[in-house]
């Protein structure tokens, strides 16, 4: 099967490496941003935009396209880097992140950036918005699917669970939610700030099909998403166990890099580790 083909997976992995380098460079050049939560979500985004989703960068408003919502809007650098790599806009534009006049706002804005489906940034909105798109798809008898990435910090938000109820009430099997379970939120470990476990049981209790995977394994992301596609009558939540700051040693599992740009020295080291010294 194609998805287990070693060459194909390593191709995706090299895109992911490039995306990570772009994200770190964007934040470095902007002087601010959220590297930790951007890097933890990269592999999910790459699997979606380079394999799983039906979309056309030349026609961002193609009615049949699959929809993606980045509920954890602070992961915008990763989303922008993936969109640029996919061809929605030039890679060179990435370095304008957070600058005056840029189409790349600090948090995603659907009116400014081609490919961005929903404006996000205030946490806990994305799943409900994705549900709205899913209801529209059902009303219009369209087959497009909706993919949402939430951060685990967003599990604190009441609206997340309101949306969880609505999705299962309406049997939205066209919704797939990825929970970027990097186990750290701004103030500390999730289990210390506001315990989430048993998280899978919570989603099951809300009527969802639940899968737990390594969120950095492209194979597992693809396999779980295909499983979600086959589940009828209920939505699927994929709990993606990830590492905040994945790919840059000193950012991995670090609270410090939740919302801080790397210094000059840190930036050089990150580029070296990501194997893109030319960046």
């Amino acid at each position: 099967m194609e998805i287990y083909d070693g060459e194909f997976i390593s191709e995706l992995e090299s895109i992911a490496r490039r995306v990570r380098a772009h994200a770190v460079k964007m934040i470095y050049q902007a002087g601010s941003g959220h590297p930790g939560g951007s890097l933890s979500a990269v592999d999910i985004l790459v699997a979606l935009y380079f394999h799983l989703m039906k979309h056309d960068p030349k026609r961002p408003d193609w009615p049949e396209r699959d929809r993606f919502v980045l509920s954890k809007g602070h992961g915008a650098p990763a989303l922008y880097a993936v969109l640029a790599e996919a061809g929605y806009f030039p890679v060179d534009e990435l370095w304008s992140l957070r600058k005056m006049g840029s189409r790349l706002q600090g948090h995603p804005c659907m009116r400014k950036t081609p490919g961005v489906e929903m404006s996000t940034g205030s946490l806990g909105h994305g799943l409900a918005a994705g549900n709205g798109m899913a209801l529209a798809a059902k009303l219009d008898r369209k087959l497009y699917r909706i993919f949402v990435i939430c951060g685990d910090g967003e599990m604190d938000v009441g609206e997340t669970w309101e949306a969880a109820m609505l999705a299962s009430h309406h049997k939205l099997d066209n919704v797939t939610l990825y929970i970027d379970r990097n186990k750290l939120q701004l103030d500390g470990p999730t289990e210390k700030i506001m315990s989430l476990e048993p998280l899978g049981d919570k989603w099951k209790a809300f009527g969802w099909h639940v899968i737990e995977i390594n969120g950095h394994s492209l194979k597992e992301i693809i396999k779980a998403t295909n499983e979600a596609r086959s589940i009828k009558g209920r939505p699927t939540a994929i709990i993606c166990h990830t590492i905040k700051g994945k790919g840059v040693s000193y950012m991995e599992g670090s609270l410090h890099f939740h919302g801080k740009a790397p210094s000059d020295e840190e930036y050089r080291q990150a580029m070296e580790e990501l194997g893109v010294s030319e960046e």
Partner: peptide
């Protein structure tokens, strides 16, 4: 009935669900 969605006592959810529907042409 097929074009009406009662969101229950969940106004925040209602507004964001509305956003998704509106973004899809409704």
């Amino acid at each position: 009935p097929e074009r009406f969605f009662n969101c229950g006592v969940a106004e925040q959810n209602m507004i964001d669900t509305a956003a998704g529907l509106a973004a899809s042409g409704k």
